[in-house]
Simulated assay, not measured.
Amino acid sequence: MFLVTGATGNVGAEPVRGPDAPVPDGARPVLGGLDDPGTLAGARDAGVRHVVLVSGGSAALADMSDPISRSLTLSERAVRDSGMAWTLLRPRAFMSNAPRWAPRLRAGDTVRVPFPDAPAACVDPRDVAAVAARSLVGRDPRGRVHELTGPHPRDQLAVLAEMLGRDLRCVGLTDGQARAEMERTLPAEYVDAIVRPDVQEVTGRPPRTFRQWAPAHAGAFR
C-alpha cells in the first residue's frame, strides 16, 4: 500500500494517475501532513516503512527567518526524525511555473523576466514523480537527498514562441538587479542553473526538456 500526499497537485497526481490512467480502485483521501509529528508517528505505527518527501532547494539554507526555507527545513527534520526510512527530493524551479506568463501573453507578445538571456534548469513535475516512484519501489538507497533539475534548456520563451506561432519578446531587469534580488532568497542552484544528475541516475533516462513539457500545456498560453 502506498500513500501519496498532495495527490491532486502537479507532482502528486503523476504517481497516482499518470497522464491518462484512471484513479486506482480503492484510493481514498485522508488528512495529514509530513511536518506534523503526530501524522508521522501514526504512519509509523500503521506500518509505513519508507517516506519520500518532496521538499525544495531552500531547505539546504536552513534559514529560519525565511518562511519558505523554515517550512521545508522543519518538514525535512520531522521526516528524518520519524524513525522511518526516508528519501528527500529537492526539485529546482518547475516547468509548470511557466503559465505565470500567460496573462501577459494574452495581453501582448512581451513578458518581463529576470535573467532574460540565462538558461534555467527547470524540472518537469513528471520527472520529480518518477524519481519519487523509483525511490519507493526501486532499489534506490534510503537516506538520500536528491537535487532534481532538468537539462540545460533552450530559452523557454523561444520554445513557446515556436509552439504558439508568435513573435514573443522578453524584457527584464539587468543581470545585476535580478541576481541581487534572487540571491536574497534563493540558493545558488536557482541563480546559476546548476544541472544535477539525480533524475537520470534514479530513473535511468535523461530528464525531460521544456520542449517535451510545453505541448501538453499549450492551452494555458493561448
Rank of each mutant, 00 (worst) to 15 (best):
I68V: 14
E76V: 06
L164M: 12
D36M: 00
S65H: 11
T110W: 12
G165D: 03
G38D: 15
V51F: 13
V54G: 12
A178M: 07
D167G: 10
D109S: 15
P119Q: 07
V48K: 04
L34Q: 13
D45L: 14
F221C: 15
L105K: 12
D81T: 07
V52G: 04
P151C: 05
S96W: 03
V51T: 11
V52W: 02
P29G: 12
V16S: 00
R179W: 03
L164D: 07
P125H: 05
W86S: 05
R44F: 10
P114H: 09
V111M: 00
F2K: 14
W101F: 14
W213N: 02
G150F: 02
V23C: 14
S58T: 15
R77H: 03
F115R: 04
R222C: 02
P125G: 04
F2N: 09
T5H: 04
L3F: 04
R142I: 13
M64F: 14
V199L: 08
I194F: 05
S75M: 15
W213K: 02
D20Q: 13
G219N: 11
A59P: 00
D127Q: 09
V195S: 06
T149Q: 09
E162T: 08
V11C: 14
D66Y: 01
R70I: 01
A27Q: 00
H217Y: 00
R184G: 15
R208E: 10
L61R: 13
S135Q: 05
L168W: 08
P125C: 05
P197R: 07
R134Q: 05
R80D: 03
L164Q: 06
I68Q: 06
L105Q: 13
E183G: 01
R196V: 03
D127Y: 09
R222G: 10
Q156L: 15
V48T: 04
R134K: 02
A161Q: 11
V123P: 10
V16E: 00
L61N: 04
G108L: 10
A41M: 13
R126G: 15
G143I: 01
P15Y: 03
L74E: 14
P24L: 00
A98C: 09
V123G: 11
D127N: 13
A133M: 05
A41S: 15
D198G: 01
G18T: 14
G47W: 12
L186K: 09
D167E: 15
R154I: 03
P91Y: 05
D198F: 02
T8A: 12
R154Y: 01
A120V: 14
G150D: 07
P91S: 10
P103W: 07
L40Y: 02
R126F: 12
G108W: 11
A130T: 10
R106G: 14
E183C: 02
P91T: 08
D20N: 13
R139N: 07
P215Q: 11
D25G: 04
M84Q: 11
L40Q: 06
P141A: 14
Y190C: 06
G9N: 06
R100T: 13
D175G: 08
D192C: 06
V51P: 13
G108Q: 10
R134V: 05
R80A: 02
G219V: 06
V111Y: 01
T149M: 09
G42T: 07
G6E: 10
C170G: 08
G42P: 06
P187E: 09
G219D: 13
P15K: 06
P151L: 04
G56E: 08
L136S: 11
L31Q: 00
R106K: 14
V52T: 13
V23G: 12
L31F: 02
G42R: 13
